[in-house]
């Protein structure tokens, strides 16, 4: 059972992503959500998702920190992490790569792209 974690402090964005991946849910995808960085980290440890969508600006722990924690400290190598952000600056992309993220997407994003990427990875 492929698993996906959606972490964003905005409820609308969580809902949006959930709805975007609805069809995949019908195909057997399990979707988890988290409201902040700490929750996201807990969820990753507990549910071990295959793919994570992490918003960058989140309370408790931001996306970079969660990503870095997962990739460097927890050493769960097989998680595909996508950092989502409304910040489009170069420095942020670099930060994203440095924290170990597999992909960096800016908002607004194209829902088709999300679906395609999830299908691709999982």
């Amino acid at each position: 059972m492929p698993k996906v974690l959606i972490a964003d402090d905005e409820p609308h964005i969580r809902l949006l992503l959930e709805q975007t991946l609805e069809d995949l849910e019908d195909e057997g995808l399990e979707i988890f959500t988290a409201e902040n960085g700490a929750e996201a980290l807990e969820s990753i440890k507990e549910n071990k998702p295959d793919m994570v969508f992490l918003d960058v600006m989140m309370p408790k722990m931001n996306g970079f920190e969660v990503c870095s924690e997962v990739k460097n400290n927890l050493k769960i190598p097989d998680i595909y992490i996508v950092l989502l952000t409304a910040k489009g600056q170069e420095i942020d992309k670099l930060k994203g790569m440095e924290s170990g993220a597999d992909m960096y997407m800016t908002k607004p994003f194209n829902p088709d792209d999300i679906v395609k990427k999830v299908r691709e990875i999982l």
């Binding site: 609308h12 949006l16 908002k107 829902p111």
Partner: peptide, 14 residues
């Protein structure tokens, strides 16, 4: 940037 893009994401997305 963040504040403007977030609601826009919802609008476009939904």
């Amino acid at each position: 940037s963040h504040e403007l893009r977030t609601p826009l994401t919802s609008i476009l997305g939904f």
